[in-house]
Amino acid sequence: MKPKKIFAVDDDNDILEVIKIILEDEGYEVDTLNTGEGVMDRIDEIKPDLILLDVMLGGMDGRDICKSIKGHSIFKNIPVIMISASHNLQSLLQFPGSPNDFLPKPFDIDNLVKMVGVQLAV
């Protein structure tokens, strides 16, 4: 059985490295990007089963990227978990094109693994 693919987007390389190590240890295939530029092209290229997306990506807003993903005819069913240290859960889950779930930073490793498992089980 092929491992599930996870695409993590965050402008903090340390966080991307931690996510990659944790989720690869759980048996997932993890691809990362440290900028909001080119996210849609990368999604089309790697065809992930789940996307972890930071809210603040340098000069870009991850919520706008999430709206683009959820509004895309091919990508709209890919679960998106947004990650943020500065935004609260309610505001993130209530905008049009909202993510499937929210993970606050700093995140607990067990919560990350559990949340990814829940979204991939749907």
Rank of each mutant, 00 (worst) to 15 (best):
M1P: 08
M1T: 11
K2Q: 12
K2E: 15
P3I: 07
K4E: 11
K4Q: 06
K5H: 08
K5L: 01
K5P: 02
I6Y: 03
F7L: 10
D10T: 01
D10W: 04
D10F: 05
D12Y: 09
N13Q: 12
N13H: 08
N13V: 10
I15K: 12
L16G: 10
I19D: 05
K20N: 07
I21P: 00
I22E: 07
I22F: 07
I22G: 07
L23I: 09
E24R: 10
D25A: 13
D25N: 12
G27K: 09
G27V: 03
G27W: 06
E29A: 15
E29R: 13
E29K: 15
D31V: 15
D31F: 15
T32L: 00
T32K: 08
N34Y: 10
E37N: 13
G38K: 04
V39L: 03
V39M: 00
M40T: 01
D41N: 14
D41V: 04
R42L: 02
I43K: 05
D44R: 15
D44N: 14
I46S: 00
I46Q: 05
K47T: 09
K47N: 13
K47Y: 07
D49P: 08
D49E: 08
I51L: 08
D54Q: 07
V55G: 05
V55Q: 04
M56V: 11
M56R: 05
L57N: 01
M60S: 00
G62A: 08
G62E: 02
R63I: 06
R63Y: 05
R63M: 07
C66G: 03
C66L: 02
C66Y: 00
H72A: 11
I74T: 10
F75C: 09
F75T: 06
F75D: 06
N77W: 09
P79C: 01
V80M: 05
V80K: 01
I81V: 14
M82Y: 03
I83P: 06
I83K: 02
S84G: 06
S84R: 03
A85D: 04
A85W: 06
S86D: 11
L89T: 15
L89N: 15
L89Q: 15
Q90M: 10
S91V: 07
S91T: 11
L92D: 02
L92T: 02
Q94K: 09
F95S: 05
F95G: 11
F95V: 08
F95R: 15
P96I: 13
G97Y: 09
P99I: 02
P99W: 04
P99D: 03
N100P: 05
N100F: 01
D101L: 11
D101Y: 15
F102T: 00
F102D: 06
L103R: 08
P104M: 09
P104D: 12
P104V: 13
K105P: 02
P106L: 06
D108P: 06
D108V: 15
I109K: 14
D110T: 14
D110V: 10
N111H: 12
L112H: 11
K114I: 14
K114W: 14
K114S: 14
K114M: 12
G117Q: 12
V118S: 03
V122E: 09
V122F: 14
